[in-house]
């Protein structure tokens, strides 16, 4: 662990990235390779509100710190994923990374936190669709993009190692 990385840990976008790594099972390099870390970060802030996003990232940063010390993912699971407050947002965030679409938060969440105009089902961007993690998890490629080439479909399938 370098000092630079340690000092960056409070940077919200670094927290967002570390959280995304834990939620998706894709490492930092793979997520950076999508070119979407900043776009998804902005989308989160825009669609749940900056105050709520700030609270979520604060809780995530603390939980991730605890998990680093304890070498497990318990804190993230109990304090963020299973949290009544953050759980629904986590579900939408996982789907955002995997599918490139935003799925709206449940009414019970909105009753407490309000909702934004953009909190409806939509494809966030063509790039978010193309970079959806589901395709590589399937050992495939996004339908209508990143063509794997002539005859590739006849080859034996292989899953990129997780």
């Amino acid at each position: 662990m370098t000092t630079t990385e340690l000092s960056n840990r409070s940077d919200p976008i670094v927290v967002f990235t570390d959280l995304s790594v834990e939620l998706t099972g894709y490492d930092r390099v793979e997520l950076a390779g999508t070119g979407l870390i900043e776009q998804h970060y902005d989308t989160l802030l825009r669609l749940i509100g900056e105050r709520e996003a700030g609270h979520l990232l604060q809780a995530a940063a603390e939980a991730l710190d605890a998990d680093r010390k304890n070498h497990n993912g318990e804190a993230l699971r109990t304090r963020v994923i299973e949290s009544k407050l953050y759980g629904p947002v986590i579900i939408s965030l996982i789907k955002l990374w995997y599918l490139g679409s935003w799925y709206p938060l449940p009414g019970s969440y909105a009753d407490v936190n309000g909702s934004t105009a953009g909190d409806v089902e939509h494809v966030v961007s063509a790039q978010a669709y193309r970079e959806g993690l589901v395709w590589s998890a399937a050992g495939a490629h996004p339908m209508g993009a990143k063509a794997p080439g002539w005859g590739s479909w006849a080859e034996a399938p292989a899953l990129p190692s997780a």
Binding site: E22, L23, T24, G25, Y26, G73, I81, I90, I94, Y98, L133, V134, A137, A138, G139, L159, A162
Partner: peptide, 10 residues
């Protein structure tokens, strides 16, 4: 979620 999700989808 995480690696378990990725693996299961595969």
């Amino acid at each position: 979620y995480g690696r378990a999700l990725r693996k299961r989808l595969g």
